[in-house]
Write a protein that binds this DNA or RNA. Structure first.
Lengths: 248, 248
DNA sequence: CCTTGTGAAATTATTCACAGCC
DNA sequence: GGCTGTGAATAATTTCACAAGG
């Protein structure tokens, strides 16, 4: 073990953890008991060496010759991700996107609990979405302090993103997920991540405009990986029967 | 010039391009004529050396002693990103998130034009959102072929994501932006990126659970960068006057 | 002086490849 | 025989630092 406990986990590893978790959840629900790094890698769209290296950071032991115990590994990853505790979150900005997130599963899934919704529009204030009522943003910092909010989700227009972020920081919020297409800044102790849909579209446009620059890699999950995967040659044909509706 | 034309642009550079573009758009609209790498870096939340290295890949010349011409540089980046052409996109899955995206600006902004909306729910089919009418997903591949769709946006539940992706691929779509919390695979010629809101939340949860592992970097835009930035000490205080509403 | 563009150095991440264990 | 964990090798990215241009 290299530097277990006193650990510094590389960011790319942290980003892959939720993917592994999802795959393991799926395997577990299907009653699969063990999984090899190669199988996990294929399902997560990365390569096997990466899976093993990633997991080794946590001192998670697999069994040579067998692989990893699915439920044990899942538990380890959930513990690492802190998915085993409920974290209070707030959403600021209840436009279309904020509404969609407020209603989304993905909170339900694990470890997140909406304790507040905020908007600056008096017409939106008072609206009930799911289990929460929209409050005016002037109450934001106060509520964050009172509810010990851990994560703030910013879905306001770009112009207002920094202002709202500052309120969250004043409210003692330690992590912010920004959906606004704006660069915002926070004190060093606050964690900040961006979800930028229009930037992602532009990146795709770039690659279409530059077919010669084929970076064989996908954004979040590591994508194609490189190993054969489902695309060993033939295209998948339609397998009919659409079993989904407008949910999510 | 190192390998200009015959260029292979590093992915991290491509991902920063939309951020630079946004900053330049802002500067340009304020009538700023030139910008130094240091100023651009600060506004984009990265460091100056990175800005210069990034821009050097495109043979974009700044002027020593002065900096970059804002409008010229903006034009170069937009050309590189292909923002100067309209790309036809479709959205598949009109749940809350799909609705939000369909109504979102960010398409309007530059280079993207919604030519189709698809869902499997008969109750949703026929609904008019913005300028498009929701069609049944069984028409997906056919419409993509007919409209020469460049980018497909997948906002269906995880279970259906691979199936829908396969239809897009059959429809000749060359780039896919997946919002479903699922690993999907595509042939090597198709570009794939993920936007995974719940994974981002989990990453933030991880860092909160591990304060010792403070990776000073943000996801998309490079975040704090390292240079002083607006946080040179004091916390920003509330500056009142919320000028935004539920829009976006 | 100020600022670019860029080799070279440093840092970070991925992949290889194999010893050791089941 | 199959599979993990991991040092060592490789590749990719960032940062430094400076020569040359305005």
């Amino acid at each position: 073990m290299p530097e277990r406990f006193g650990r510094r986990i590389p960011e790319p590893t942290v980003v892959r953890l939720p993917v592994y978790q999802r795959v393991l959840l799926e395997l577990s629900s299907h009653g699969v008991a063990t999984v090899s790094s190669a199988e996990l890698a294929e399902a997560a769209g990365v390569n096997a060496a990466k899976v093993r290296k990633d997991l080794s950071h946590f001192g998670t032991y697999g069994t040579p010759g067998t692989g990893y115990d699915v439920d044990y590994l899942l538990g380890q990853i959930q513990r690492e991700l802190g998915t085993d505790q409920e974290r209070p979150v707030v959403i600021v900005g209840l436009g279309h996107l904020g509404h969609a997130l407020a209603r989304s599963r993905g909170f339900a899934g694990g470890g997140f609990h909406i304790v507040g919704l905020f908007d600056s529009d008096e017409a939106t204030v008072g609206e009930v979405i799911g289990s929460a009522t929209v409050r005016h943003v002037s109450e934001l910092a106060e509520v964050c302090l009172a509810e010990k909010v851990a994560i703030g989700i910013v879905t306001v227009p770009a112009m207002a993103a920094q202002e709202v972020t500052d309120q969250l920081v004043q409210g003692g919020v330690g992590a912010i997920l920004n959906f606004a297409p704006a660069v915002i800044s926070v004190p060093p102790a606050v964690h900040l991540r961006h979800v930028d849909f229009s930037a992602e579209l532009q990146v795709l446009a770039f690659y279409q405009a530059h077919p010669e620059t084929a970076a064989r890699r996908a954004s979040l999950s590591g994508g194609e990986g490189g190993s054969k995967g489902p695309y060993g040659g033939e295209l998948p044909s339609s397998n009919g029967a659409y079993g989904w509706s407008s949910g999510r």
